[in-house]
């Protein structure tokens, strides 16, 4: 219980942060049928925008304004570039979003520098939220959970309980018929892209403050997000949710437990020197490659992902 409880809370905190990104990416993929490679770049912009705004107007203003800016930027990208590329097929869209990754990264380096910036949570979020089983749970991680649940709850309400959400859900299934009923599907595309970008912006404004805000943050989290979407199943929000918590949980647990592989796989010890070198690794050292091992396993045994309907 000593390590399970804090590891579980860390898993939920990190997993929900991942899900905020994966949910937006999945939503956009479901509607437009294209992977937005630049999704994690929008997350990074959320962090940098929030950092710059926080310096002028405070953390809380940045937390609200940065996601709105990122959502607006996302809508402009969809409206003025992706919409025109959509008619030419998926390859031009993929190439554009891939190029956008490079452009945004270079702009970030030019504007904010090559190193990490000093973007942190405000003093009121730096304390201990509660203590249990001899472990202190920091307030900023509780804050991540709260923001993630609030923003995901708001998105759920919008999609599941409003008329606009009804049109979005119908457009996910059959955009041509939705258009024939008098709804401007182009505007729906823009709205959904903006929603996804906004979610990435919120994740950046929060994640940047509790993790680190640097030019490599998009590349680091971007690959994990794609792993989550593949493991969960392309286009499946439920799959993205399960995979986010699974990967967030596994990483958190591996980092928390202080054991070597040799302790877990005793019978294999001494079989060969190469294997012994692997067994000497600590579980925490395996944490960064675990998502990719999981993805390989899923692609081998279940190419559709856990809840997807189409093969990757």
């Amino acid at each position: 219980m000593d390590f399970i409880f804090p590891a579980a809370l860390n898993a939920i905190s990190y997993g929900l942060l991942l899900f905020m990104l994966a949910a937006g990416l999945t939503l956009v993929f479901s509607l437009m049928g294209v992977m937005n490679f630049a999704h994690a770049s929008l997350y990074m912009l959320g962090a940098y925008f929030a950092y710059s705004i926080a310096r002028q107007a405070g953390f809380w203003v940045g937390l609200v304004a940065a996601p709105l800016l990122v959502a607006g930027l996302g809508m402009l990208i969809e409206r003025h570039v992706l919409r025109h590329l959509h008619a030419r097929g998926h390859i031009p869209e993929l190439l554009f979003t891939f190029g956008l990754v490079l452009v945004i990264e270079e702009i970030v380096k030019l504007v904010w520098g090559l190193g990490a910036v000093d973007y942190r949570v405000p003093p009121e979020l730096r304390g201990t939220l509660f203590e249990a089983f001899g472990t202190r749970f920091p307030m900023h991680k509780g804050f991540v959970i709260l923001v993630a649940l609030a923003s995901l709850g708001a998105i759920w309400w919008l999609i599941a309980r409003t008329r606009t959400g009804l049109v979005v859900r119908a457009a996910l299934a059959n955009p041509a018929m939705v258009e024939s009923l008098g709804h401007d599907v182009g505007r729906i595309f823009t709205l959904v892209f903006g929603l996804g970008a906004g979610l990435a912006g919120i994740a950046g404004a929060v994640g940047g403050a509790v993790l680190v805000t640097e030019p490599a943050m998009a590349a680091h989290l971007g690959t994990i997000i794609f792993v989550i979407v593949v493991v969960g199943g392309l286009g499946s929000i439920k799959g993205a949710f399960i995979a986010s918590l699974l990967i967030g949980g596994l990483e958190s647990v591996l980092i928390a437990i202080d054991v070597r592989l040799s302790d877990l796989l005793m019978p294999l010890k001494g079989l060969s020197s190469g294997l012994d070198a692997v067994l000497a690794l600590k579980a925490s050292q395996l944490a960064p490659i675990l998502p990719y091992l999981l993805m390989v396993a899923v692609l081998v045994f279940r190419p559709r992902g856990l809840f997807g309907e189409r093969e990757v």
Partner: peptide
């Protein structure tokens, strides 16, 4: 338009399908 293969939204309820057919405001 009543299309040849109906194109109803299978995952939505009957009433939600009807609501979708009734554009409001500028949509109308």
């Amino acid at each position: 338009y009543v299309p040849e293969n109906r194109e109803i939204f299978a995952d939505l309820t009957v009433e939600e399908n009807l609501v979708l057919g009734a554009p409001v405001g500028k949509e109308r």
